[in-house]
Design a protein around this nucleic acid. Structure first.
Lengths: 386, 386
DNA sequence: CGACTTTGTATATTGGTTAAACAAAGTATT
DNA sequence: AATACTTTGTTTAACCAATATACAAAGTCG
């Protein structure tokens, strides 16, 4: 849609600017908001007054003087509402209740017995309903539900395909939105993880981020200009099916030599090593105990991870790459070989100022990211590009 | 820099909106601009008056009535100024003089005898000076120089590395900007090509485009949200060094199995076929004459092109992929096998609404794209993202 | 020829930001 | 303690771009 400029737009821009400045940097005085944003003191005053009325910002009393009148400190009202973040995994359904700052109020985990759509959907509804009911009373109540799923999601919020669940074409967003009458945002697990890292993890204030979620498969959440990039139809980031061996192993996607056949949990069944276990958790335990086969296997995966990561670096030139997902917990055995390969294979210019780290948020990154997508949807955001 | 909203911004947004609407859709009446933009008739009138005063828009007299008063038709004044577009190639320096619409006024080609920096630079300066001197007299004169080069360019306009020229760290943009005192935009050849296709070729009104320039190497110009994506430091799109054979041939970049070793002119020296020639032009001639070795080789390249293109599709989910560069002229022999591989290997969801075509602009796409970057730099553009 | 349409301009209003003055509340200095 | 200076935040008037509305101009159509 075409956006024209008028005074309402100006106000929206500035109000959003003030709100997010307070959200990110509180406690803060009106005066310092004015300096930070470049807005006139009077403008800040009016906008803050409105935000206070909307209960999104609160005045919490005087702060320290710096040689003049004491400032009246402002806080972002993280308890103006709550959001729910959900991560759907193969054997588990996890949910968090968060405040608007993204802080966790409550966590619920539920073990899934099977993947029957009706069963999972009912469980999800029950879980959400429970969290909504126990949520602390807030001015706006529960303002959004964010969901991270292991599969492809299109821009309409339809879960197109989730191989590990055996699901296809589930209109998850619409179903839940109708049921709860609350905005629902649906994202694949990698995208949600990227948003989580961007706001709470290792990627704060990064504008070009690649979050690689390595688990049962590989998917990437792509942040471009500080914003999630979803591609034309919403399917961007399906990097697990990037071919790194033109005539390699056949993949269920119809292609050959896909990255995730060499650098995800899919390797466990075809390893050249005699693996003492076939899941990441147990393999990590074995590696800790010094099991050479497990360690060798992880090192091998690390090398292949490096190959794919190099490809992403060459294509996207990100500031930061974060390896997340279940495999991020195997960092001690993956990192060295992965970094070696990346160092060998990237162009010298790319190495400058590029960082690669493993996720620090752990398994909750997806959930929190999903929740945070809802927060942003509620608060709104607007930007100017020259 | 932080952008705040005020009335100046509003005006800038709307004026830009009006200007680019006229530029894209002229001839046009004020009334239809109002309808198309959503701006009030009065607003359009004021802004058009200013644009006329700036000589960017001109009134060309009455148009056809549609049942009422005749409209006063507006034109974008493509002769308000001129720009110069330059493409630096291995053996050739080409330059165009364009009007602000991007139409070619004049072309100059110059054969380069060697790649000595001073020699090439002098030639370039002479060529530009000549074009500036013969440019038709316009209100704004020559307002920009856009250059497309075969190598990596950083965000400061420094040509970091051009393997085929043997150049490193050339501050081309700054040198020319100082010399001519005109804004210079420097881009790699793939990025310039992408801009060309976006504005004049097969990609008009596409927001997510991948332009793959296949020639002596492979590079990609990435358009995201209608805007060139350059990555954190300006090096995005180095897709030629995307690995498609983890343990493949060693590449000069330090890696192995890089895409361009299998799908660019680099294949000619290592082909398994007995090639009758070792450059694209001659090979195409041979293929036309039915030379089976040449045809087989192109088919093979097409398959590898398909592998890389599939990777790009999975990562970026673009609306459109354009194959450009010298190899685009081998379309008849590349297309079938490339499309076969892509069809086999992409996920079913990606196939929907994805188009792959070969460049229609030919070898001039880069030059025109480079020139057009300068036009946009001169006219300015501003956008709102919600 | 009169009714209706379309195009474009003039005018008063609206509603946002802003500079400047000011009030309030503190610190530093003599 | 009195005075001068700082810092914070509000009030006021001015400014300016978009807009709705009315209107003028120039056409079509029956």
């Amino acid at each position: 849609m075409k956006v024209t400029g008028d005074q309402a737009l100006v106000k929206k821009i500035n109000k959003s600017l003030v709100l997010h400045t307070v959200r990110k940097h509180f406690p803060l005085s009106r005066s310092s908001v004015s300096v930070m944003t470049g807005l006139n003191k009077a403008t800040v005053s009016t906008l803050v007054a409105e935000l206070c009325e909307q209960q999104l910002v609160i005045e919490v009393g005087p702060g320290q003087s710096s040689g003049g009148r004491k400032p009246l400190m402002l806080h972002f009202n993280n308890m103006a509402g709550t959001v729910i973040g959900i991560e759907l995994r193969v054997k588990q359904l996890s949910a968090v209740l968060c405040d608007l700052k993204g802080d966790i109020i409550l966590v619920r985990d539920f073990t899934l017995e099977h993947h029957g759509l009706a069963y999972v959907l009912d469980t999800m509804k029950d879980l959400i309903a429970e969290l909504i009911s126990v949520a602390p009373s807030t001015p706006y109540g529960t303002v959004g539900i964010g969901i991270g799923v292991p599969g492809m999601v299109d821009e309409q919020g339809i879960l197109l395909f989730a191989p590990n669940l055996g699901w296809e074409m589930v209109e998850l967003q619409q179903i839940l939105e109708t049921y709860f009458a609350i905005p629902v945002t649906l994202d694949n697990e990698a995208n949600a993880g990227a948003v989580g890292e961007l706001n709470f993890g290792a990627a704060q204030d990064v504008s070009h981020l690649l979050y690689v979620s390595a688990g049962s498969g590989i998917g990437s959440g792509i942040i471009i200009d500080g914003k999630l990039y979803k591609g034309a139809r919403g399917y961007a980031g399906e990097t697990g099916h990037m071919c790194i061996e033109a005539d390699g192993k056949p993949c269920s996607c119809g292609s050959r030599g896909c990255w995730e056949l060499y650098a995800s949990e899919k390797t466990y069944d075809t390893s050249v090593f005699k693996l003492p276990a076939h899941n990441t958790q147990d393999l990590i335990r074995c590696a800790k105990q010094g099991n050479i086969e497990a360690i060798r296997h992880f090192e091998q995966m690390g090398r292949y991870l490096g190959v794919g990561v190099t490809n992403l670096i060459n294509s996207f030139n990100p500031e930061l790459i974060i390896i997340g997902g279940a495999l991020s917990e195997a960092e001690p055995w993956l990192a060295t070989s992965m970094n070696e390969v990346v160092a060998e294979r990237t162009l010298p210019y790319h190495k400058q100022q590029l960082q690669i780290t493993f996720s620090k948020l752990g398994s909750r990154g997806t959930m929190i990211g999903a929740a945070f997508s809802s927060v942003m949807h509620f608060l709104g955001s607007i930007r100017i590009t020259l």
